[in-house]
Amino acid sequence: MGNIKFSVEFSGGLQDLFGQKKIPIPSDKNEDQIQLPKLLPGESLKLKHVIDGLAAKLKGRNAKLKLFVQGDKGFYEVTPGILVLINDSDWELEGEYEYEIQSGDQVLFVSTLHGG
């Protein structure tokens, strides 16, 4: 996974989760770094790993964590009502959690829950 560069974005109210709209991975700034889980040799980076890394960043801030993921099944699931777009394409068409991240990808999390 060494050289993969991609970004995650948040909108529809989720931009407050991490205090910024767009997070590059890896980030230039240390404090914004998202720690991705260590992969086995030959294993490729998948969206679920990214979600785990993002969720880890929210650990200890339960209210925010719940807005983003639900962990009651023993693994993190994106909270229902959040759309995930990978390069503008519905993640359901891309393999959801098993999607293999490519360099240059843009992953967008949009909440549909916020009213107006």
Partner: peptide
């Protein structure tokens, strides 16, 4: 939400 996203509509969410 998808329509707003793909049409780049300017909306406020809170």
């Amino acid at each position: 939400v998808l329509y707003a996203h793909h049409k780049n509509l300017d909306y406020f969410s809170t």
